[in-house]
Write a protein that binds this DNA or RNA. Structure first.
Lengths: 399, 399
DNA sequence: TGACTTAATTCAGGTGTCGTACTAAAACAG
DNA sequence: CTGTTTTAGTACGACACCTGAATTAAGTCA
């Protein structure tokens, strides 16, 4: 246990309480100052001061008219509800992958302001970062031109990200090893914009926890599957990273069919049993343009073909065994399936849930729920944007 | 993601900075006020004020003489180093098990002040809590009589502990289900002493991270083995609990020999391959009074018996496979083996480490180290005591 | 129109941190 | 032996923040 923590001054206090107010507005919606004081436990005077600052900073607005949200309660002076608009304050989320780059910008209230995807021509060569940098600077410039401020940016990367959240340690799909991606982007952003990077599964997990099907729980596990399998772990509302930042690399756990050969050369890796390729050979079908299209085609076939359904159920069993392992270790309240599992949900989840119920040691006490992601292809970028704003809500960033 | 956080006033600030000073003194040793200011980043005046308070509270003392710790650097007025003595301020750690109860008290500097163990006569009946309560009140009374203050108490329990850290959800060995143990103890403590409970593996993990072989890392995994297998997970210096507090229940992960029958009735549980019973049948020996004695006898036999050595190496392989799984999920910097694995260390660790190196996806980048616990039988109680003091160091508790 | 009720702001008081100036205690130079 | 230099610790004023009570604002109801 090394030394942690930093000195705290009075302005740190203010930031913390500001974060508290912002979180309350986001989680429980608009409220009057008095109501906010009740929610947060702060004194009315303090809330008044904080709201005043936020208002002049453009983070919140007094909706003088549409006070229909809270019942006026009849008597007394009616309060003016304060709403988290924060249209001016944006978090920029970026995603880089082998065949596309994407950008999502959200404002403080969580509203998505911009979504943009650009294909990347991968002529066999490992992709450069130029497309990413171009997209990022383009989106940011146009946002700034329209009067917004981009407080932070985060990039979701398919690979291992170092613990400093600035370096790509190992991204075999991209061929980026030890790349200082955060510094590159910061250099490209005129005027400066603090930038971090994170694993794509981590970002998607964050997206599910903040906007998706895991909003109601504090501890969740996100599982994404395409050719490889990756996990993002949210514990107490924050991402679990591990000593080197490599937590959640669950694809090569020895689970499932012990004789299956994995792309990594070893035997018995989980993704050799439940990865896209394994699924395709099990159902006897071919790969299509994208994992999602492939999975949708398989789901269509399953509607008519019994053997496909049995193969998928068997895959669901392997999936459930791995989930049981993860659940025993992490005890999440909800497990979210993303990636190619989404179209196949109805065919794999029941089998997985059943295995989970059988295998979980504390099943009689506590059984986590398996849910399907609804966020679609931009989950990782959305989570990255959310991550970019996270420091605002904790109060680490001023305005 | 639900609403989290609480309002912060100025006195909260002081507690936080006090915690910072205390942690610095503990982690990096005694220091002068100026040195503390440099370490923590606080202003000299602030440190002076905080140290003054701590001194009058009995947490630290000015060792006027033994200033040999820091080199006087020649010139200038020599500083008076401040040492974390805190002899008056104690954390009480308790452990309850099927055949004994134990108590450990440590002071702020981490020095162990009291260790006491009492056997429990289990005449087949599930043990009551009377022995625990008696031991706890006895130890606490005598400490108070000798002028100490017991700030907090924590009980390590072999079983599932609810997320509130006050209720035993499920402890089959003790037959305690849904027992409000924390409340019972608080009721027994005259004058009141905030009490929490926690899983024994969690406590032992904390002990290793604060006093044992994992002091140098922030993320560690503790694995204890007797008849069952349990894990304690430390991430960023704090325990990982999970949504219901059941994280770390790794004994029944489907890993190892898939045909082995587990005590829980299922097939292929990890502890059916590496638990004490499995180990004994593998080496063909009988159980003795305690798991540690049993393991020591096996280790003795291994010195002369080749077949025992091979059996243990095979067990080490199963151990390694499970560790590889856990390491892939959690990415710990160190893995600590406790329980009956300690005497068998030289026979199982090499095989486990080899499997780990083979199976870990990021082996070329980052390979966690497997270490053997050195804390002995009182690890859980020591960790519980550490846990009891944790709130002092975070600043959540005044004095 | 006036009493009542509730929202929001103002104001004084307390606590905390910080930087500067000041005092204290040593080594060193002459 | 005295004065200078250097560093440790403290005293003090300025500033920021939170809080509770008093005050003002803005409605409803009789």
């Amino acid at each position: 246990m090394a030394l942690t923590g930093s000195p705290a001054g009075t302005e740190h206090l203010r930031r913390q309480n500001t974060g508290l107010v912002l979180r309350s507005l986001r989680v429980d919606g608009p409220a009057t100052r008095t109501e906010l004081a009740r929610r947060t436990g702060l004194a009315k005077a303090t809330v008044g001061s904080i709201v005043g600052e936020l208002e002049s900073g453009g983070a919140v607005t007094e909706n003088g008219t549409a006070s229909t949200t809270t019942v006026p309660s009849g008597r007394g002076r009616p309060g003016k509800p304060v709403t988290l608009t924060g249209e001016a304050i944006l978090g920029l989320g970026l995603e880089v992958n082998v065949d596309y780059v994407a950008a999502v910008a959200i404002d403080l209230s969580g509203r998505v302001k911009v979504v943009e995807t650009r294909p990347v021509a991968t002529a066999g060569r490992p992709p450069s970062a130029t497309e990413l940098v171009e997209l990022a600077t383009d989106v940011r410039s146009s946002l700034i031109a329209s009067g917004h401020t981009v407080v932070r940016a985060t990039v979701a990367v398919p690979g291992l990200v170092a613990h400093d959240n600035r370096t790509v340690s190992w991204a075999p799909n991209l061929g980026w090893n030890g790349r200082e991606l955060a510094a590159e982007l910061e250099h490209a952003f005129a005027g400066g914009c603090p930038t971090t990077i994170d694993n794509d599964a981590n970002c998607a997990a964050l997206a599910e926890a903040s906007h998706g099907v895991a909003v109601d729980v504090e501890d969740s596990l996100y599982l994404t599957g395409t050719i490889g399998i990756g996990a993002g772990i949210v514990q107490r509302g924050t991402l679990l990273r591990g000593g080197a930042g490599f937590a959640g690399e669950v694809g090569h756990m020895p689970i499932g069919d012990p004789t299956a050969t994995c792309g990594c050369g070893r035997l018995g890796c989980w993704e050799a049993s439940i990865g896209l390729r394994a699924m395709l050979t099990a159902v006897g079908m071919d790969e299509q343009a994208t994992p999602l299209q492939t999975a949708t085609a398989v789901a269509d076939r399953a509607a008519s073909d019994d053997s496909v359904r049995t193969a998928l159920a068997a895959l669901g069993g392997h999936l459930g065994r791995g989930i049981a392992t993860l659940a025993a270790v992490l005890d999440p309240s909800a497990i979210v399936l993303g990636g190619y599992f989404v179209p196949l949900g109805e065919h794999v989840v029941p089998a997985a849930q059943q295995v989970l119920a059988e295998r979980l040691p504390s099943a009689d006490i506590h059984l986590p729920e398996i849910r399907l992601s609804t966020l679609g292809i931009h989950a990782a970028a959305l989570g990255a944007a959310e991550h970019a704003l996270a420091d605002v809500f904790t109060g680490a960033v001023p305005l």
